Amino acid sequence: MENNNKIESNRIADDLEPVSMYQIFARMFIHLAKEIVEEFGEKGEAAVKRGVWNFGVERGKDIARRAHVRGQKNDSDNYLISYDMDRSDEFESIDTYGDGYVEQYFTRCVFASEFQKAGMEKYGWLYCEMIDPAIAYGYNPNLECIHEKHFFTDNVCTFCFKMKDCKGSKS
């Protein structure tokens, strides 16, 4: 029997708006974090933070590997250019490079947006406070992450990634 009604299984209907992997990841994270914290309280919260930290360190080590493959040092100049995650239009930032540091000013972040839409900022903090310092540390233990402004409180997010011996950073 011949089947003439074949459908490509990896295509969504043209009349549906796709949901990005970033949105799906954020939604999954808050549901997992919420269940763990509700079940185990402070110990659960600490476990989620450790999990995010370990995930971030692993990513940072891979970003360092990516810099190395390109023949570059794992310093602040090569951090973002070797990053493992593309910036889709769901993120919007201005990156400013200085001597031994790079600053980022985010005006859009799909993760923060999803956490806020769900009213789950409490669990979003567990991710947002840990992930970037952990990635920076995994990339280079001498790369500090200063995270002064946050979407949940300031409607923008700012980062300064600076080498510990850097004196030129604004932060």
Rank of each mutant, 00 (worst) to 15 (best):
D15M: 01
Y101K: 02
M1G: 13
A46W: 01
V37T: 14
C128M: 11
A47C: 10
Y22A: 15
C109P: 06
H68G: 02
C160M: 06
E39S: 15
Y101F: 15
A33M: 05
R50M: 09
S76T: 15
K34L: 06
D14S: 10
E39T: 12
G98K: 07
D154I: 10
T107N: 04
E38N: 15
F159C: 07
I7S: 02
I63N: 06
C128D: 04
L143K: 04
F40I: 02
F29K: 06
D89K: 14
V102E: 02
I135R: 08
E8C: 08
I81A: 09
E2M: 05
E17T: 15
E38C: 10
I146G: 00
K49D: 02
Y22G: 13
S93T: 13
Y83I: 08
F55Y: 13
N142Q: 10
G119A: 03
H31V: 03
R59W: 04
F91H: 09
E103D: 15
A112V: 10
A112Y: 01
M130V: 12
A33V: 04
V52A: 00
H68Q: 13
R11W: 09
S20E: 09
A112K: 01
E38Y: 09
D154G: 11
M120Y: 08
E103N: 09
I7H: 03
G56C: 05
C109G: 11
T158Y: 00
E58P: 00
L80S: 02
Y139T: 13
M163W: 04
S76F: 05
D154Q: 09
I131G: 00
G41R: 04
Y123R: 13
K170W: 01
V37L: 12
D95N: 14
L80K: 08
Y105M: 09
K167Q: 14
F115P: 07
F25Q: 10
P133H: 01
P133F: 00
G100F: 03
E129A: 11
A33G: 06
